[in-house]
Lab assay of single mutants.
Amino acid sequence: DYFTVDMEKGAKGFGFSIRGGREYKMDLYVLRLAEDGPAIRNGRMRVGDQIIEINGESTRDMTHARAIELIKSGGRRVRLLLKR
């Protein structure tokens, strides 16, 4: 199942961390959800969800650093296409 999650940044960021990336020879996944962060309050994202797109850009062969950069580059908002 594919689904989109739109979030607005909180005081401590978006409230999730990721693992994976090209340099680890793996796809990008949601690693952790911060307690009471925007990701957990949104209610749609879960640990283990695969991140397919960040702000419309495919994560295929994307490095971990580039993924972080893209998440931050959207300013106060981020849109993720996830797969569960």
Results as ranks from 00 to 15, higher is better:
1 D>K: 15
1 D>G: 05
2 Y>K: 10
2 Y>L: 15
3 F>Q: 05
3 F>G: 02
3 F>H: 05
3 F>C: 10
4 T>Q: 06
4 T>I: 07
4 T>F: 08
5 V>A: 12
5 V>S: 03
5 V>E: 03
6 D>F: 05
6 D>G: 04
7 M>P: 01
8 E>H: 04
8 E>V: 07
9 K>A: 15
10 G>H: 05
10 G>F: 03
11 A>V: 07
11 A>R: 15
11 A>H: 13
11 A>P: 10
12 K>M: 09
12 K>S: 11
12 K>R: 14
12 K>H: 06
13 G>E: 05
13 G>K: 04
13 G>S: 08
14 F>I: 04
14 F>G: 03
14 F>V: 09
14 F>L: 12
14 F>N: 03
14 F>S: 04
15 G>D: 03
15 G>C: 02
16 F>N: 00
16 F>K: 01
17 S>Y: 15
17 S>H: 12
17 S>W: 13
17 S>R: 13
18 I>K: 00
18 I>Q: 01
18 I>T: 04
19 R>I: 02
19 R>T: 08
20 G>C: 05
20 G>S: 03
20 G>N: 02
20 G>V: 01
20 G>P: 02
21 G>Y: 02
21 G>H: 02
22 R>V: 15
22 R>S: 12
22 R>M: 06
22 R>A: 08
23 E>M: 02
23 E>Y: 02
23 E>C: 02
24 Y>L: 13
24 Y>W: 10
24 Y>V: 13
24 Y>S: 13
25 K>Y: 13
26 M>A: 14
26 M>K: 12
27 D>I: 04
27 D>T: 07
28 L>G: 00
28 L>H: 06
28 L>T: 03
29 Y>W: 10
29 Y>D: 13
29 Y>A: 11
29 Y>T: 14
30 V>G: 00
30 V>L: 06
30 V>W: 00
30 V>H: 00
31 L>V: 12
31 L>H: 14
31 L>Y: 13
33 L>A: 04
33 L>N: 03
33 L>C: 05
34 A>P: 06
34 A>Q: 15
34 A>V: 12
34 A>M: 13
34 A>G: 11
35 E>H: 09
35 E>I: 10
35 E>M: 09
36 D>F: 09
36 D>M: 10
36 D>A: 06
36 D>G: 10
36 D>E: 15
36 D>P: 06
37 G>E: 11
37 G>R: 06
38 P>A: 13
39 A>G: 08
39 A>R: 04
40 I>M: 12
40 I>N: 15
40 I>H: 14
40 I>L: 11
41 R>M: 15
41 R>W: 07
41 R>Q: 12
42 N>W: 05
43 G>C: 09
44 R>H: 15
45 M>A: 04
46 R>L: 13
46 R>E: 13
47 V>W: 04
47 V>C: 08
47 V>H: 10
48 G>D: 14
48 G>V: 01
49 D>N: 03
49 D>Q: 06
49 D>E: 02
49 D>W: 01
50 Q>S: 11
50 Q>H: 09
50 Q>A: 15
50 Q>W: 07
51 I>R: 00
52 I>M: 15
52 I>P: 00
52 I>E: 14
53 E>C: 09
53 E>H: 05
53 E>Q: 13
53 E>F: 05
53 E>G: 06
54 I>F: 00
54 I>D: 00
55 N>P: 00
55 N>E: 03
55 N>K: 02
55 N>L: 02
55 N>C: 04
56 G>W: 03
56 G>A: 05
56 G>D: 07
56 G>S: 11
56 G>H: 09
57 E>Q: 14
57 E>G: 06
57 E>L: 10
57 E>Y: 13
58 S>H: 11
59 T>H: 02
59 T>W: 00
61 D>I: 08
62 M>N: 02
62 M>V: 09
62 M>K: 05
62 M>C: 11
63 T>Q: 08
63 T>P: 07
63 T>V: 04
64 H>W: 09
64 H>E: 13
64 H>M: 08
64 H>A: 11
64 H>S: 14
65 A>T: 10
65 A>V: 11
65 A>F: 06
65 A>K: 13
67 A>S: 07
67 A>M: 03
67 A>N: 00
68 I>R: 13
68 I>Q: 12
68 I>L: 15
68 I>N: 11
69 E>T: 13
69 E>G: 09
69 E>K: 05
69 E>V: 07
70 L>V: 13
70 L>K: 10
70 L>M: 09
71 I>N: 00
71 I>V: 12
71 I>P: 00
72 K>M: 12
72 K>Y: 13
73 S>E: 13
73 S>C: 10
73 S>R: 12
73 S>A: 14
74 G>V: 08
74 G>D: 09
75 G>K: 12
75 G>Y: 06
76 R>G: 13
77 R>M: 12
77 R>Q: 10
79 R>S: 13
79 R>T: 14
79 R>E: 15
80 L>P: 01
80 L>N: 00
81 L>M: 14
81 L>D: 05
82 L>Y: 01
82 L>E: 00
82 L>T: 04
82 L>G: 02
83 K>H: 15
83 K>Q: 15
83 K>N: 12
84 R>I: 02
